[in-house]
Amino acid sequence: MSTLHTVNKTAADDALAACLRVATSGDSLLLIEDGVYQASTITGHPQAQVLKLFALKEDTDARGISLPSSVTPIDYAQFVELACQHSRSVSWF
């Protein structure tokens, strides 16, 4: 029943804010591409507390971004696994 949300934009775009408004408890949120720049600020977001948070390791490595402990790094293979574990995915791009 749960949804995998992916966000690939920085905070200059309202994609993450929109995603957080409609994501619900048990959903997963994966930051990819420029979305990984929001990894450290997202943890302070009240709506983010009920979500499982991930970031794509290839994209954080490329940008020199280190992740807070509440955001789990995953690789592309795990991205595929994650997509399979959810009923649907929404790309906020």
């Binding site: 029943m1 949804t3 408004r21 409609v22 994501a23 619900t24 009923s87 649907r88 995915s89 929404v90 790309s91 906020w92 791009f93």
Partner: peptide
């Protein structure tokens, strides 16, 4: 909107 998403097979944004 969250409910609409949960009840959907596919979501495009």
């Amino acid at each position: 909107i969250a409910v609409l998403i949960r009840e959907s097979d596919v979501v495009y944004q």
